[in-house]
């Protein structure tokens, strides 16, 4: 399984800012990923989302509460990771033919600053009488192998099902 959000150039730069304490020590991470497609959001988007979050927090234990819609089209969780870092994420799928992200953004909050990364950029906005479209630019996106997150995703799904907080490690 491969994906590209974790190695998006802006996110790579933001992670460097975390590791060099440009924004101080990490306090919170907030991720939203909304895609067009079909199926279960946690299954389709969860592995990559965990990869993105783990890149920011490093390996850690997270006490979290998850919620999912009955059709599995949307999952949200909020948790407290090691050293009190607050982690939240929303994953959802909007039904449609085009296979692309509608929204993918992550915010890293530090003790001395914050970084907001639109994971769908860089891209140009081209506005004409016919409408508006976005044109990616820069280095072509590469795909990177994803780690295994099966146990983590299973625990998140169980929290949503039971309505109880759970402890996971990623």
């Amino acid at each position: 399984m491969t994906a590209s959000l974790t190695i998006q150039p802006g996110y790579t730069r933001a992670l460097a800012a975390v590791r060099s304490a440009e924004i101080g020590l990490l306090r919170a991470v907030a991720l939203d990923v909304v895609s067009i497609g079909a199926g279960n959001a946690l299954r389709e988007l969860g592995t990559e989302a965990i990869d993105v979050l783990r890149a920011a927090t490093g390996p850690t234990t997270v006490d979290l509460q998850a919620h999912s819609t009955a059709d599995g089209g949307a999952t949200t969780f909020l948790g407290r990771a090691g050293r009190g870092v607050v982690v939240s994420a929303h994953l959802s799928i909007v039904e449609g033919e085009r296979r692309e992200h509608l929204r993918a953004a992550i915010r890293l909050v530090g003790t001395h600053g914050s970084v907001l990364v639109d994971l769908l950029r860089p891209r140009l906005d081209v506005r004409t009488a016919a409408g508006t479209r976005q044109v990616p630019f820069g280095v072509p996106r590469a795909d990177a192998p994803l780690g295994d997150a099966a146990d983590t995703l299973a625990a998140i799904a169980e929290s949503a099902r039971s309505g109880r907080t759970t402890s996971i490690t990623w």
Binding site: A30, Q65, H67, A70, A74, T76, F77, S88
Partner: peptide, 12 residues
């Protein structure tokens, strides 16, 4: 604050 709703919706 994470809110849960009976429909399965949620809010952060």
């Amino acid at each position: 604050m994470e809110l849960g709703f009976a429909s399965g919706a949620s809010a952060v």
